[in-house]
Design a binder for these strands. Structure first.
Length: 860
RNA sequence: GCCGCCGUAGCUCAGUGGUAGAGCGCAUCCUUGGUAAGGCUGAGGUCGGCAGUUCAAUCCUGCCCGGCGGCACCA
């Protein structure tokens, strides 16, 4: 018996797949069911890590399973290739970002191919290919024409390390998502995509994404942040400031509390505040407000400060009631109208502010069970349900009814309207970087900002940018930006900002449907393949990439380039790959491969293998270079083969949860691979004996069919770890029926079991599956074999062993024919001497028989 | 503070309204011409805690405890 040797079999089968081009997607053929499986494409860092192995193995299981189910499968791969790491490498090592990137792609492509993925490599592209980003410039111009692109001077998030602008989504806890540096505010001319035009649809259609994790949908819903309320204008009680003659517009979600108003507040950046800044005292106050940082901690602890402008407005329901207008640091310019009315009794921020500046606090919502005469608001605002009081025409209405009544009255008075407001801001897409997709625009002193005519696309990056210092290498290129104006023909300069790399990744899935098309997207191909049926990637993109991609899909659909309005029908977000950490006594991190373990008195100890120095076993954390708790895929492939690595990374945890890599775990997977092979190898060659009725063979057959059923259900529902657990059980069962000395009937049942087994493991350990399939004389390659079907009749045992409970405790068992009627079972049970003994001295009150499952006797 | 997820064997995790499972680890034994190995057998669980519903709860409901994640001055 030969040992299983992945070093021989794995390359052999990969070559066989490549030679026969089995993974090339078939042509779009209406009527032929399609399946588009996609994993988030990688950034070409140059090294494959275990997270990639997990991500692409998960997607590969789906793709291979659907192939076996007869679908025309599209499973492509590409590279998210623009971005800062290339510039950093260029700066640090003096290399060319383009060369660095393509070299990395070559390395990673080789590693990914080693994983044995069922990828259609003929469709591969990188976002830094001019053939790709030129098409991106093409549709960018279309969106501009549609009014979805605009340029505006605005305050932006500036990352001082990466020296570039960041979108709101890319600021995490006040820090840049890549650099981790505290983000600064800067005023810049910026390019924006009007994602807010789609805010309503982006929220509403989340409901239709029933194969997305609830968690991601919830996060997007919170991010978009729709709220319903009222926008209205206060009329001036004092003299109207210039330009604000029509009043001061505010937004509120609590119009029911209008009678509790005690002041009106505006943001320090509000145009009215800026106008008032002519007064040095106001200017000084505004400067004071800017001082505070944007970090979470600073916002959290920032004290509320205000400045009374001396202006007053009239209450909309009582013109004689004057409210002071304050500038306040806690009011955000870019939410609502940048101005609010303060109702201290029912809003904590307003209350803090009112207490500090001694403004009135008047309760107007009465909590259930409180007495209107005695109810008071102290240090805590009341934001719960209740009925309006102290509120004239609103008195007695509950919160919702009072809101509606207040909105109706304001609308009647022509002072405002019910309004929906979103937290979502427009997407700032310009980046001051050289290694990105150039924005196809020309600046002309005479004609202004002019789009590049489409026949001049692609606008290609120069080959000779200087990345030796920080900043925008494209902007400092000596000649690239010099051009002529497409309109007047005069001298002009090119836009030197490039697009956020999240633009690159917001449509690549559509380009994959036809990578050769002259148009950015071939409509017919996209109509056949889109949407992506199953998308797999990390949860970290829940509100970045996944929101942008949805927006761009909708925008391109409105442009007529796509028929679908949602890109990803199914989404799966996988967990991270973690590993124990190890440190020397001095705190220095130690790599796992240098560590050796021993178990002593039940506790596990670690030491450095070479020196015997004791090592502290630390927390389990995400694999990272800084903590040295990484295991590289190639070292694992080298020892155990690709299949064992794939199997382990899929078997250990539910795919959506973090999985812990361990040396012993992958060894277990490796042993499984060998034991599986041994079962195949011990099966005598030659045709399988014809099935004959035989109790022993039937037992194995029943298990086989139950396993097919169980694994199929597990794969369909993305519970790959449970599915693999069933494979382990199947193997254990198979070992109860060894080939040696088996009857022809059992050998026949074994053959059936092995034939199913080879196909069932093929999505997980595809190389082993091919070898096993060939060993038992399977037709063709297992990748092209149909998924095994189960016979429902065979998944049932003829005889059932029912546990017998007395008062809910198991007291024995009884075997009956499957499907035996409860009445008959009851008789059998009561006649059973063992059970009768258990019931001595008790009187039977009730007997519950659940068909084919259990018997419970209630006795006392 | 708000929202969500998780808690089952020593470890990592399956599972189910009705007999508690796998891998790893551990113990015993066998093999020592699959050998930087292979195999047999076994021990090990108040299914986080308390209460409720039920003939029956690890599973359903409520409360609590512990761990993790997201959001957070969004009016």
């Amino acid at each position: 018996m030969a040992r299983y040797n992945p070093k021989e079999t794995e390359p052999k089968w990969r070559k066989a797949w490549a030679d026969t081009e089995v993974f090339r997607a078939g042509p779009p053929t209406p009527g032929v069911p399609k399946y588009y499986a996609l994993e988030m494409f990688p950034y070409p860092s140059g090294r494959l890590h275990m997270g990639h192995v997990r991500n692409y193995s998960l997607g590969d299981v789906v793709a291979r399973y659907k192939r076996a189910r007869g679908f025309n499968v599209l499973h492509p791969m590409g590279w998210d290739a623009f971005g800062l790491p290339a510039e950093n490498a260029a700066m640090e090592r003096g290399v060319d970002p383009r060369g660095w990137t393509y070299e990395n792609i070559a390395k990673m492509r080789a590693e990914l191919k080693e994983l044995g993925l069922s990828i259609d490599w003929s469709r591969e592209f990188a976002t830094c290919d001019p053939a790709y980003y030129g098409k991106q410039q093409d549709w960018f111009l279309d969106l501009w024409k549609r009014g979805l692109v605009y340029r505006k001077e605005s305050i932006v998030n500036w990352d001082p390390i990466d020296q570039t602008v960041l979108a709101n989504e890319q600021v995490v806890d006040g820090r840049g998502w890549r650099s981790g540096a505290p983000v600064e505010k800067r005023k810049l001319n910026q390019w924006f995509l009007r994602i807010t035009d789609y805010a309503g649809e982006l929220t509403d259609s989340l409901k239709t994404l029933d194969r997305w994790p609830d968690k991601v949908r919830l996060m997007q819903e919170n991010w978009i942040g729709r709220s319903k309320g009222l926008k209205f204008s206060f009329g001036w009680a004092s003299e109207a400031p210039k330009g604000f003659e029509s009043g001061l517009e505010v937004y509120t979600t609590r119009p029911d509390t209008l009678y509790g108003a005690s002041f009106v507040g505006i943001a320090p950046e509000h145009p009215l505040a800026e106008q008032l800044a002519a007064d040095p005292k106001v200017a000084a106050f505004i400067a004071e407000c800017r001082k505070g940082g944007a970090s979470e901690a600073e916002i959290e602890t920032a004290e509320k400060i205000g400045f009374d402008t001396g202006l007053t407005v009239a209450h909309p329901f009582d013109p004689s009631w004057r409210l002071p207008v304050w500038i306040a640091n806690f009011i955000l310019l870019d939410y609502g109208t940048g101005a609010v009315f303060g109702c201290p009794a029912h809003d904590q921020r307003d209350l803090d502010f009112a207490r500090k500046y001694d403004l009135p606090v008047k309760a107007v919502v009465l909590p259930p069970g409180e007495d209107p005469a005695s109810f008071q608001v102290g240090g805590e605002a009341y934001t719960g349900p209740g009925v309006a009081f102290n509120s004239d025409f609103l008195n007695g209405l509950d919160v919702e009814a009072a809101k509606a009544a207040a909105i109706a009255r304001i609308e009647e008075q022509g002072q405002g309207k019910g309004a929906t407001v979103f937290r979502l801001r427009d997407w700032g897409v310009a980046r001051q970087r050289g290694w990105g997709c150039p924005i196809p625009v020309v600046h002309c002193a005479k004609c202004g900002v002019i789009p590049v005519p489409k026949d001049q696309l692609p606008i290609v990056l120069p080959d000779d940018m200087d990345f030796s210092k920080p900043g925008n290498a494209l902007a400092r290129h000596p000649t690239w930006k010099d051009t002529t104006c497409p309109d007047c023909g005069g001298a002009a300069t090119r836009e030197t900002d490039t697009l956020d790399t999240f633009v690159d990744s917001s449509w690549y899935f559509a380009r994959f449907t036809d990578t050769e098309s002259a148009a950015p997207i071939d409509k017919a191909a996209a109509d056949y393949w889109m949407p992506v049926d199953q998308y797999v990637g990390g949860i970290e993109h829940a509100v970045l990439h996944l929101l942008y991609a949805r927006f761009v899909t909708k925008a391109l659909a409105d442009e007529g380039m796509l028929s679908v309005r949602e890109p990803f029908a199914g989404l799966f977000t996988q967990g991270m790959v973690t590993h124990e950490t190890y440190r020397r006594q001095n705190g220095e991190w130690v790599e796992p491969r240098a560590v050796e373990f021993e178990t002593e008195a039940g506790s596990r100890r670690a030491k450095i293998a070479e020196t015997g120095e004791p090592i502290v076993i630390g927390d389990v954390e995400k694999m990272s270079k800084s903590k040295k708790n990484t295991v590289t895929p190639d070292e694992i492939f080298d020892v155990y083969g690709v299949d064992a690595a794939r199997l382990f990374v899929l078997s250990d945890s539910p795919p959506e949860r973090d999985t812990q890599w361990s040396a012993s775990g992958v060894e277990g997977a490796w042993r499984f691979v060998n034991r599986v092979w041994n079962e195949f190898d011990s099966q005598p060659a030659g045709p399988a004996p014809a099935p004959v009725a035989d109790p022993k063979a039937d037992e194995l057959r029943a298990f086989t069919h139950r396993t097919i059923k169980g694994l199929t259900e597990a794969v369909e529902s993305f519970r790959f770890n449970s599915g693999i657990a069933r494979m382990y059980e199947f193997l254990n069962k198979l070992k109860e029926f060894p080939a040696e000395g088996a009857t022809p009937a059992v050998l026949g049942a074994r053959h059936e079991a092995l034939s199913a087994f080879a196909r069932l493991i093929s999505p997980f350990t595809p190389h082993l599956a091919e070898e096993a399939w060939a060993r038992i004389g399977g037709e063709g390659m297992v990748v092209s074999a149909p998924w095994p079907e189960f016979d429902p009749a065979l998944t049932q045992d003829a005889v059932r062993i029912l546990p017998v409970q007395v008062n809910g405790k198991r007291r024995g068992e009884i075997s009956v024919a499957a499907g035996a009627e409860p009445a008959d079972v009851e008789k059998l049970v009561l006649n059973d001497p063992e059970i009768a003994r258990r019931l001595e001295g008790l009187s039977i009150k009730k007997v519950i028989v659940v068909k084919d499952r259990i018997v419970n006797i209630v006795a006392g």
